[in-house]
């Protein structure tokens, strides 16, 4: 079966810094793939490249059989309409109430009352009551903002959803709540999901399959159950959280 998303030899550099050095990745329809990797390894650049928010230097990105790197204008907008995305910081619009944020991608022609009702339905999916709908994002806690952002990401029922560090900045309990919500939303709505994270607890819970990005390349990928017996020195060091190993982090001695 052809994968829903196919990434082949994708390269991207910013100035002299090579961020993606030839990434290869396949994501099947309905699959939940988690890409793990340290900070600054190019995880965010990878998902923004697939979305068409960043132009890659070379390589191929195919979504539903369409080459994304060649898309422009209306064709690119149609491609982007397939996606929902949960941004690391939520990226909620400060100037709009919660219900307008959640219903933002829905057609305005439906009218304010129906949009608000749809927003309240989606808020219920992430465990938030209707009383939240009229609040401003700045009036919410970090965990609530993440849940509102999650409701917004799925409101338009995207075919594919990207989660950018979904548990960053949350306490362990709230992080687990978010993980559970992601699992249930992806399963119930039959969405293809790509998550990038360095939170291993999150990866173990969300993923069908895990891939590790290091130095701009995928150094290992396999089923979630194989992560602890991957036999890959990079994965082992990352999963075990060890300072010593092949992943060198330069630290100048005091």
């Amino acid at each position: 079966m052809t994968a829903k998303i196919i990434v082949r030899d994708v390269r991207k550099r910013f100035g002299r810094k090579v961020v993606l050095g030839g990434v290869d990745l396949d994501i099947a329809a309905g699959e939940s793939l988690v890409v793990i990797g340290g900070s600054g390894t190019g995880k965010s650049v990878l998902i923004k490249s697939i979305l068409g928010l960043i132009r890659v230097d070379s390589g191929s990105i195919i979504v539903d059989g369409v080459e994304v790197t060649a898309l422009r204008g209306a064709a690119l907008a149609a491609h982007q309409a397939k996606f929902g995305m949960l941004f690391q910081g939520g990226a909620l619009f400060d100037s709009l109430p919660v219900w307008r944020n959640v219903s933002f991608a829905l057609p305005r022609s439906e009218g304010a009352a129906r949009l608000k009702a749809a927003a309240i339905d989606n808020l219920a999916r992430v465990g938030l009551g209707p009383d939240v709908a009229d609040l401003r994002p700045s009036e919410l806690s970090g965990g609530m903002q993440k849940r509102v952002a999650l409701a917004r990401a799925v409101a338009a029922r995207p075919e594919i959803i990207f989660f950018d560090e979904p548990t960053t900045g949350l306490d362990p309990i709230m992080a687990d709540v978010i993980n559970d919500l992601i699992v249930s939303l992806v399963r119930d709505l039959k969405i293809t999901a790509l998550t990038i994270t360095h939170d291993m607890a999150s990866a173990r819970k969300i993923a069908d399959r895990i891939a590790m990005l290091y130095a701009g390349r995928i150094v290992w990928q396999g089923p979630r159950g194989m992560i602890d017996i991957s036999g890959n020195a990079y994965v082992d060091q990352f999963v075990q959280g060890r300072a010593d190993g092949p992943i060198a982090i330069p630290v100048i001695p005091a």
Binding site: Q80, M85, A91, F104, R152
Partner: peptide, 14 residues
């Protein structure tokens, strides 16, 4: 810088 402009793109808005 808070990615709200990127978010607009993913919410079917130019």
């Amino acid at each position: 810088v808070t990615e709200q402009i990127d978010a607009l793109t993913t919410l079917r808005t130019d």
